[in-house]
């Protein structure tokens, strides 16, 4: 009996692995408020290539990624790219302060309760997903490094080149 109880206790000690949102899986259906408070459903953006980025004002690499996302938005929005940055800041004021320093001309959604964190099984901050026109996740990037720019751009270009479903 004691052995069984100990094994049970060991089971409790080892945390269960979270289900990762791998490339090829559909984008979870989430609806979050935008900057003006109007709810935006990710599912309603189907037909566009999405760059879904999870960020927070305290995340240092986000300071690098935001100006680049803005540039990407300028260049590729006309071809069907929509950058969706989801803020996981608990305090909206902190997010807004970040946004005055790093202006974001793309879609901004706010998730102060971080409900999307476990839903997307975010491995790091920031994490970005490239989503195809069919609503399927193409690739996932944990963090944002210098070399991610070329890979992300190539992946987005490839997704943009795919025919609409």
């Amino acid at each position: 009996m004691p052995v069984r109880v100990l094994l049970l206790a060991l089971l409790l000690v080892v945390p269960p692995p979270g289900a990762a949102l791998d490339p090829g899986s559909p984008l979870p259906a989430v609806t979050l408020p935008g900057r003006d408070g109007e709810p935006v459903a990710l599912g309603a953006l189907r037909g566009k290539v999405l760059l879904v980025d999870f960020w927070a004002s305290w995340c240092a690499p986000c300071r690098e990624s935001f100006p680049w996302f803005a540039q990407l938005h300028e260049e590729l929005a006309s071809r069907g790219l929509q950058v969706v940055a989801i803020s996981l800041d608990q305090d909206r004021a902190e997010a807004e302060r970040f946004l005055t320093t790093f202006p974001a001309p793309f879609t901004l959604l706010f998730d102060p309760d971080a409900k999307t964190g476990p839903l997307f099984a975010l491995p790091a901050m920031p994490t970005s997903f490239v989503v195809g026109r069919d609503g399927m996740v193409r690739t996932r990037h944990a963090g944002f490094r210098e070399r991610d720019r070329a890979t992300l751009r190539a992946e987005i270009e490839a997704a943009l080149a795919e025919p609409a479903p």
Partner: peptide
């Protein structure tokens, strides 16, 4: 005693801090 150990050990099952909780 075994039950007590089991309960105490289960206390170590605290979930790690998630990336989005590192403010």
């Amino acid at each position: 005693a075994t039950l007590a150990i089991a309960i105490v050990l289960a206390g170590c099952a605290a979930q790690p801090v998630q990336p989005w909780e590192k403010r």
